[in-house]
């Protein structure tokens, strides 16, 4: 992958002083849809078949270049199980970008994704750039899978875990895309396993972030936040894990 692994590797090219712009990005989505795997693919370009579930959240960083700027993603990869939900605000507060992930082989995971989108649109930073990612397309890579679900077994990248049941796509790309368009989200189908679409999600987000506004004088830290980014002590964005009281509704 052509990832930029460190700052010095880049600093030579343009004449503009290359100071990476920090972008806080959060991954949300149902358990086991592949959030951590997407991050691992993006950051280390690897895939682990048996990734441990994320407890609370994991934090990773990765730089990427968009046009003549370097973006340093600060990635918060959250836990997917429903009962961890109440912790999420602790991680998405101040996020400038979010990837909401679902699993194309599980329709229910799209519903969960939609509810995350709704929550972000109401509670998170108002300018947040949201991408919807339908992951695990490798499991249904047979294009007209609805017609030949059985042929999947012969597929070179056939799944290893679904021994008896053939895996079929449950979320058509068009359906998800329509939803994404209507809700103003970026949309991608991805495979963390094969690496398909992963770089693209992050690049597209990087392009969509209003970087110029963010290159304001403030130093590293939360350079990305337009305006004040102190926590609003009694507002919705504040999760219960956070300090300060949370407001009533």
């Amino acid at each position: 992958m052509a990832d930029v692994s460190d700052n010095t590797a880049l600093s030579g090219s343009p004449s503009v002083p290359m100071k990476p712009v920090q972008v806080k990005l959060v991954l949300l989505g149902e358990a086991a849809v592949g959030k951590s795997s997407l991050v691992l693919r993006f950051v280390n370009n690897e895939f682990q078949e048996n990734k441990e579930p994320t407890i609370g959240a994991a934090f990773l960083t990765q730089k990427t270049r968009v046009e003549d700027k370097i973006i340093k993603f600060e990635i918060w990869d959250t836990a997917g199980q429903e009962r961890f939900h109440s912790l999420a605000p602790m991680y998405y507060r101040n996020a400038q970008a979010a990837i909401v992930v679902y699993d194309v082989t599980r329709a229910a995971s799209l519903d969960k994704a939609k509810s995350w989108v709704k929550e972000l649109q109401r509670q998170a930073n108002p300018n947040i750039v949201i991408a919807l990612a339908g992951n695990k397309v490798d499991l249904v890579s047979d294009e007209d899978d609805d017609l030949h679900p059985d042929e999947l077994d012969g597929d070179e990248e056939a799944n290893e875990d679904g021994d008896d049941m053939p895996i079929t796509r449950q979320v058509p790309a068009e359906e998800a895309r329509a939803y994404a368009d209507e809700s103003g989200l970026l949309f991608f189908e991805t495979s963390a396993k094969l690496g398909h679409g992963v770089q693209e999600v992050f690049n597209e987000i990087a392009r969509k972030i209003p970087i110029d506004q963010m290159l304001m004088p403030s130093r590293s830290g939360r350079a990305g936040m337009p305006g004040s980014n102190r926590i609003d002590l009694n507002n919705d964005g504040q999760g219960i894990g956070g300090r300060g009281g949370s407001c009533a509704c």
């Binding site: 939900h85 109440s86 929550e119 219960i240 009281g245 509704c249």
Partner: peptide
């Protein structure tokens, strides 16, 4: 209180 109001909000 925090959890209650969070659950309520969601």
């Amino acid at each position: 209180h925090g959890i209650e109001s969070f659950t309520k909000r969601s």
